[in-house]
Design a protein around this nucleic acid. Structure first.
Lengths: 225, 225
DNA sequence: ACCTGAACACCGTTCAAGT
DNA sequence: ACCTGAACACCGTTCAAGT
């Protein structure tokens, strides 16, 4: 009571896993920009330098965070159909990454691929190959899927924050109508809300690419046979 | 002589444009991470605070840098064919962005779209609409293209740096062969070099998407007629 | 041998004191 | 009115001094 903390000697020794887990949780709460070695240490009730026992530097911590998130992907069981297998793996990847909005940005900036990341890519490539894709077409297919293999796409539509007072807002809208009519009609298209179902858009684009790949694969198979 | 500088009063007054241009050049040279308000000020032979006369803060500077790069895109003339028009605009966008490797990452992280950015998107959307695409299909098409509308794709293949000594490298390669056979065969596929033609891959994926859109568009037009 | 506080070399930005 | 140096509140990380 009186807010007196339990003796710190009672606290179990910090493990690398605890550090990474806390970092992921903190990033979820406050965003990746607010995650510093110092704020993380504070959260763990530890001196900043103590973290360096478990990670060589911040970059290694970020790598470990990516691994942690990618590790949450539930691998779908093997599927006879290459397309179903890849599709469900990607959607499961999407589900995992959606829980950690900062993860896509981190995956993109990592320079060294970790084993966990490579496992995911290997699994997708193996599905294509098992489906009869040539090495070359598999390679192209991986590029075509790109970051969508992680279940995210770069959001291209800006989140414009509306002006404060009503007249300024009307005026701004009028200007947009004149200069960006095609963007405005898209933004206002759906139920007037302007928001769009990101998941539906994701599946549409994914299927568009898989359709294309399937077609090319079929044609090249016919040409060979 | 003797390294004595010309009186600083001779230096023409700094303009916003100079600041942005110098920032772009500096980022090209030393990378975006090494670009700080302080290093930029030093490059311009000016006290850091002088920059704040021309940009409100660093974020606004980054916005301006994006605008500068996007402004380098040569808009292709209007094209009868929606597909040719969009394709050439995207390839011209790619050419501009390739000169500034840091630009994609910056475009992705900007939260507010600038007029220059919106102009680019508007032009592409307008091409779809002029080609007879419905508002809804245009919307989906924009999402499907995603960041490819700027001419870049997230690089998904890791740049693994090989081990130092030869035996360690052989051993590492052996492990990879066992664990990531599909990735290894893709990496070694082309001429043994392992490098792939990024531009060819880009065009392949772009055409894959445009093919798909063209097909859907044709089918929906037939259904309507 | 282990731990850690102070210190270093940076950031972006504020602000008051100078001209 | 304009400019700017010092200062503030942060960073990631080093390192030597403490136990």
């Amino acid at each position: 009571m009186y807010g007196v903390r339990v003796s710190s000697s009672k606290r179990p020794r910090l493990q690398r896993h605890d550090v990474v887990e806390a970092a992921v949780a903190l990033a979820d709460e406050v965003g990746i920009d607010a995650l510093s070695m110092r704020t993380l240490a504070q959260r763990l009730d530890v001196v900043p330098m103590a973290l360096y026992k478990h990670v060589a530097n911040k970059d290694e911590l970020l790598d470990a965070m990516v691994d942690h998130v990618v590790g949450e992907i539930e691998p779908a069981g093997p599927d006879e159909n290459w397309r179903h297998g890849i599709r469900s793996r990607i959607l499961s990847s999407r589900a995992a990454l959606l829980r950690h909005p900062w993860a896509p940005g981190l995956i993109e900036t990592r320079t060294q691929a970790s084993p966990v990341v490579l496992d995911h890519m290997e699994a997708i490539a193996a599905s294509f190959r098992a489906g009869g894709f040539s090495v070359d077409l598999t390679h192209r297919a991986m590029h075509a899927i790109g970051s969508r293999m992680w279940g995210f796409t770069q959001e291209v539509f800006p989140t414009q924050q509306p002006a404060q007072d009503e007249t300024a807002r009307d005026q701004q809208f009028g200007e947009w109508m004149k200069r960006y009519p095609r963007i405005v009609e898209m933004a206002t298209e759906i139920g007037g809300g302007g928001g769009c179902d990101a998941h539906e858009e994701f599946e549409f684009a994914l299927d568009l690419i898989l359709d294309g790949l399937e077609r090319i694969h079929r044609e090249s198979a016919r040409a060979d046979g």
